[in-house]
Structure formats: structure tokens, C-alpha cells
Amino acid sequence: MSLIKEMTKGFFKENPVFVMALGLCPALAVSSSIENAIGMGGAATFVLLCSNILISLLKNLIPSKIRIPCYIVVIASFVTIVDMTMNAYLFELHKNLGIFIPLIVVNCVILGRAEAFAGRNNVVKSIFDGIGMGIGFTLALVAVAFFRELLGAGQLLGVNVMPANYQPILIAILAPGAFLTLGLLLGLMNLLKKPEAD
């Protein structure tokens, strides 16, 4: 039961993007379409899961003084693996995500979970935490991308869903649209969390 909780806390209650405000750079940059958001979320989830497993296994071997460089080496290795594998087998998606794949290395969600969770908990818990946080991150990206793609391109997952005479609100897929959408969604989350706060 508590393992499930370790996982589901990342979806909403401790959502890495909307509650902890971590990993905002990819949330802003790679959320212009749902396809990119899922690709980025999937890649980050994979790295997060692997680094959580390895770091929780190694936590007794790694002296606390050099834990951050060790975590970074572990994370960077997994990111490079993802980068090379995607480049080889998912060439199109890799072209779209471009520079943002290598940048997963400095995604605060992953280092944050390594430091705050995997370095202090056992493997099983870390697996569930990694999956949960990864899905939470992906959900957040997809939520932002949903509005940006719908309003800015009139599409969802690349399929036209708006009426033919719909004029796309271009700003939504430009950089300012990312800030606007993320800000408004953050506000909405706060509103849902504490409806009576004033």
C-alpha cells in the first residue's frame, strides 16, 4: 500500500513541475507539442528510474562528500545511453528533441530525486518513486503541451481537431506561450489544492 503511495505522490501531491517547480526548463522548452512532451517525459522517466535504482544500490558505497559528482556521472551516463539509442532507433523524435536530450543531465528532477530519495531509501521504494515522479513529470509536460498544441496549432498529437476555419493562436507555441500556459496551470493547481486559502 505504501509502495503505491510512493508512486502516486508524484502524480499530483508532489508533482515535480507543478508543486516542486523542478525541471521547468524542459517543461517550457519541449512542451510545444504532445508528441515531444511524451518523448521527453519518457526519456526523463527512463533516466530517472535507472539513476534511482543505481544510486539506491550504491548509496552505501558512495561517501557523502563526493555523492553529487557520483550522481552526476551516473545520470550523465544514462542520458548519453538514451541519447545514442534514440538517435539510432528513434531518429525523427531525436531530431525534434535535439539539444534537450543531453540537457536531461541537468534536469533538477533527476538529481533532486537522487539526493532527496534514492540516496536514503531502498531499491524497491526508489523504483516506485522514480516511476511515479517520472510519470508526474510526463503528465505535467503533456498538460502544458495539450493547451499549447491545441491553441497554437489547432492540433492534438499532430491531428487537426479544431474546425477548419480556426485561426491558431501562434503565441501559444512560441516561447511566451510556454510561460503563460505553465503559469496559468500552476495557478490552477494552487487553486485546486487549497480552495479556501485567502
Binding site: 550504491l58 558505497l61 558512495i62 561517501p63 563526493i66 557520483c70 556521472v73 551516463s77 548519453t80 545511453i81
Partner: peptide, 14 residues
């Protein structure tokens, strides 16, 4: 040495 070991293993895998 520990850091070196971790980096070496990572490089080998990569």
C-alpha cells in the same frame, strides 16, 4: 578512487 571507479565503469558501458 571511488569516483574514478564509477567514472571508469560508466565510460566502459558508454
Amino acid at each position: 578512487l571511488i569516483l574514478f571507479l564509477i567514472a571508469a565503469v560508466a565510460s566502459a558501458v558508454l
